[in-house]
Each structure stands twice: as structure tokens, then as C-alpha cells.
């Protein structure tokens, strides 16, 4: 069953047609990679899912709800979490607080006025956050301020912030961009581990090593259009993909 159904999405920036009749169907429980050369419209497409951009036409249906016109926090509340290209975390707060905030957003909704009781009075949230930090391997630093973390650790933290919300769909925008090979492999392992939870994931990625390690389905985007879709083996052998993406070279 498709959890995210994207049909006939168009987006134009001035004279540039960034997205042209994009069709995409993401199966529940799958790891769906979107690949394509620079400027193919990958990030534009992702921004249409999270409320940052509004397509000119078309529809984006998630789990029976249209995401178009919703604000970022409303989209998150429907069960979509996002990992950013550069890790977006609360740099001035502790790791534990970073993970507790999304948990509160999930438990209390988009706004709840509770200015009297201490944060620590919600022990169940604190315990869950601590357990998740343990799982991503950051338990030792849980009381540290995040700004001192390495890039890889920030990525882990951001992943924990998404996971604590038990999202139905996790969007990953180049999760290994700018990372060392070791950090990249750690991230792949972490994503595989998360895979065991059965969360549907959409990954936008340049690094083919990452894509072929994780993806169950791949869509290839070129010049704003999906030119191929299929399982990794099909995509590897598809001549159109090699032409558009790799300029004819073999994978």
C-alpha cells in the first residue's frame, strides 16, 4: 500500500521548470531513494513534502491527507519527520533536551501552555529520551551542550530527535553529505538499525554507496521528471539512467 502518493506535481521558478509532472508512489515500509544529477529537482521535491514550497499544481497525499498548504508543524503532526542536509539541532541545549523537545511536541501537540511544572516532572519522556540516546550511542554526552558535538554525532542526535516521534515517514535529505567515510558508514549502520522499526523512509542522496546499501526502491529524477523507477538492480542496468545520471559510464 502506498503511504505517500505524489501525482502530477509541477513547480516553476521563473523560466525554470524545476518539477515537471512528477509521479511518485512510496510504499509503506520501503526505503525509497530519490537520486539524480545536480539540479534535477530532488530538494525542490522534498521541500514540497514538508510545507516549505507550494507546488504550482498536482497533489501530495500522505496517508489519506493532502500535505499541500499545510505548515511545517502541521505536516510533522501528521507523522512526517525530517532530517536536514546540515544537521539541524538545538545547539544551545543539552542532548537530552534536544530529544525531549520532539517527544513533547508529539505528546502535547503543536501548542500546550505548561509554564508551572518542571520539565523533569515528566519522567516518562525523560526516560524514553535517555533510552533513545543510549540506542544511538550518545548516552554518555546526554548532559552536554550540543554545539560541541562532531558532525557525525549531530547527525545521530538529529536521527534520535526524529525517531522519538515514532514517525510514519522519515525524510532524509542527503544524510551523509560532507561526512567522512567512517561517519558515512556509521550513519548507514544507524539507518539500517532504524530500518528494523519498519519506518518508511525517503532518502535523497548523491552517494551511490549509501543508496545501494539501503534503498529498496529507487526513483531517478532528471530535469524535473522521473525518468526511471524500480529496484536497485533494475536501476543499475537501466541505460536511460546511465545516460542521464552518469553520462554513459557504467556503475
Amino acid at each position: 500500500m502506498a503511504i505517500l502518493e505524489v501525482s502530477h506535481v509541477n513547480k516553476r521558478f521563473g523560466g525554470l521548470k524545476a518539477l515537471n509532472e512528477v509521479q511518485l508512489s512510496v510504499e509503506e515500509g520501503s526505503v525509497h531513494a530519490i537520486i539524480g544529477p545536480n539540479g534535477a529537482g530532488k530538494s525542490t521535491l522534498l521541500n514540497c513534502f514538508v510545507g516549505r514550497l507550494m507546488p504550482d499544481s498536482g497533489s501530495v497525499i500522505f496517508n489519506g491527507t493532502s500535505l499541500l498548504g499545510l505548515r511545517p508543524h502541521e505536516i510533522n503532526q501528521t507523522g512526517v519527520s525530517r532530517v536536514f542536509q546540515t544537521p539541524e539541532i538545538f545547539e544551545d541545549l543539552t542532548l537530552l533536551e534536544n530529544v525531549m523537545i520532539p517527544a513533547f511536541a508529539k505528546a502535547d501537540g503543536a501548542f500546550k501552555f505548561n509554564a508551572w511544572y518542571r520539565v523533569s516532572s515528566r519522567a516518562e519522556v525523560r526516560d524514553e529520551a535517555a533510552a533513545l540516546l543510549e540506542e544511538v550511542g550518545l548516552a554518555d554526552q546526554s548532559k552536554m551542550i550540543c554545539s560541541a558535538l562532531s558532525r557525525g554525532d549531530k547527525r545521530r542526535l538529529e536521527m534520535a530527535m526524529c525517531l522519538i516521534q515514532h514517525p510514519k515517514l522519515l525524510l532524509l535529505d542527503e544524510p551523509t553529505a560532507g561526512m567522512s567515510r567512517a561517519d558515512t558508514n556509521n550513519t548507514i549502520d544507524l539507518l539500517k538499525k532504524i530500518g528494523e522499526r519498519g519506518i518508511t523512509k525517503i532518502i535523497i542522496e548523491h552517494d551511490m554507496h549509501v543508496v545501494f546499501s539501503l534503498a529498496t526502491t529507487i526513483s531517478v529524477l532528471a530535469q524535473g521528471t522521473v525518468i526511471a523507477e524500480g529496484n536497485p538492480d533494475d536501476i543499475k542496468g537501466d541505460p536511460r539512467v546511465q545516460e542521464a545520471y552518469l553520462g554513459g559510464a557504467h556503475l
Binding site: 514538508v50 505548515r71 511545517p72 508543524h73 510533522n76 503532526q77 519527520s81 525530517r82 536536514f84 539541524e88 539541532i89 538545538f90 545547539e91 544551545d92 541545549l93 533536551e97 525531549m100 523537545i101 520532539p102 513533547f104 511536541a105 508529539k106 502535547d108 501537540g109 503543536a110 500546550k112 501552555f113 505548561n114 509554564a115 508551572w116 511544572y117 518542571r118 520539565v119 515528566r122 530527535m161 516521534q165
Partner: peptide
């Protein structure tokens, strides 16, 4: 309080907070 923590989160990274729901 929780409210105070959310305010500090706004100061730290309002964009992230919105994408956090």
C-alpha cells in the same frame, strides 16, 4: 517548565522546532 524549554528552543533554532511539530 516545558513552556520555558520551548522558548529556549525557539531562541536556539526556530526552524527546527517548526519541523519538529
Amino acid at each position: 517548565s516545558n513552556f520555558g524549554m520551548m522558548l529556549k528552543a525557539i531562541k536556539s533554532n526556530q526552524n527546527r522546532l517548526q519541523y519538529t511539530g
